[in-house]
């Protein structure tokens, strides 16, 4: 906890300045005070937590899940086949220059207001860090250790599970730590563009009603989801990579 002391002090100061500033400017539809947001959150708790939150969570879960499966599968394939790597890796890197958010409306056109338009945005935004970090992890396998396995007569399968997978794990977790908060952003953007429920959708609806505190309240919950997911990954990482000096 001591490690976070300075951050907590900084945030408290920031919130304090925000609060005084907001009260001074007094335009709560543009800049609601933190206390106003907190009150709004309390007021809307049932609707937000029981109705909108589950919708968003499902999008995040499906999006992240598919991203993990596809990303890991592609990373493994590229690790096995040099040709595949040379064909796909450059495209993967270049694809990051495409402004995905600008493309998002197209998915709404294709998939309508169904859950899939949001899931696709989430997948696209998280697929890259997962794939690239997993692949880089596989590639970081020490050549000398590979040779040692060879001299011990290891099979391809043993080489993969006993050497390449453990070698890739640290990098995979780094990628996952980037991807997890991004999945929340992806889901929120998706809902922003076209949805009938969800925290992103609710925030946007409040915007059209000039309800400043109402815009911020679901965003607070979205950040909390991001933080919780991140902490989960960190705990998982510490548990699986016990051997590392954290």
């Amino acid at each position: 906890m001591k490690n976070y002391l300075y951050s907590i002090i900084l945030i408290t100061i920031f919130l304090f300045i925000w609060e005084t500033g907001a009260r001074f400017v007094h335009t709560s539809f543009i800049l609601p005070a933190p206390t106003e947001i907190a009150m709004k959150l309390w007021e809307l708790k049932v609707e937000l937590l029981l109705y909108h939150l589950p919708v968003t969570l499902v999008i995040i879960a499906i999006g992240l899940g598919i991203s993990l499966v596809l990303g890991i599968a592609l990373a493994i394939s590229m690790n096995i086949s040099k040709t595949l790597e040379q064909a796909i890796y450059p495209i993967l890197i270049t694809s990051q220059t495409i402004p995905i958010i600008a493309l998002a409306p197209i998915f709404v056109l294709w998939f309508g207001y169904s859950i899939w338009s949001k899931v696709i945005v989430t997948i696209i935004i998280t697929f890259f860090p997962i794939t690239v970090s997993t692949f880089d992890g596989f590639q970081s396998t020490s050549k000398e250790l590979k040779e040692l396995f060879q001299t011990l007569g290891a099979t391809k399968r043993q080489l993969f599970f006993k050497l390449e997978v453990p070698s890739a794990l640290p990098s995979f977790f780094s990628g996952l730590k980037v991807a997890v908060p991004m999945s929340v952003i992806g889901a929120a953007i998706g809902e922003w563009l076209g949805a009938q429920a969800g925290l992103g959708y609710f925030s946007r609806r409040m915007m059209t009603q000039f309800n400043g505190a109402g815009v911020f309240a679901p965003i607070v919950i979205l950040s909390l989801i991001g933080i919780l997911l991140f902490i989960t990954v960190v705990l998982l990482e510490k548990n699986i990579l016990k051997w590392r000096r954290f």
Partner: peptide, 24 residues
């Protein structure tokens, strides 16, 4: 074969490292 560096796997304990040939 004992290569030029010790080449132990950082994610395995002493016992697991030593037993690798048996495991394979």
């Amino acid at each position: 074969y004992m290569p030029q560096q010790d080449l132990l796997m950082p994610w395995r304990t002493v016992q697991q490292n030593a037993a690798l040939p048996l495991e394979l």
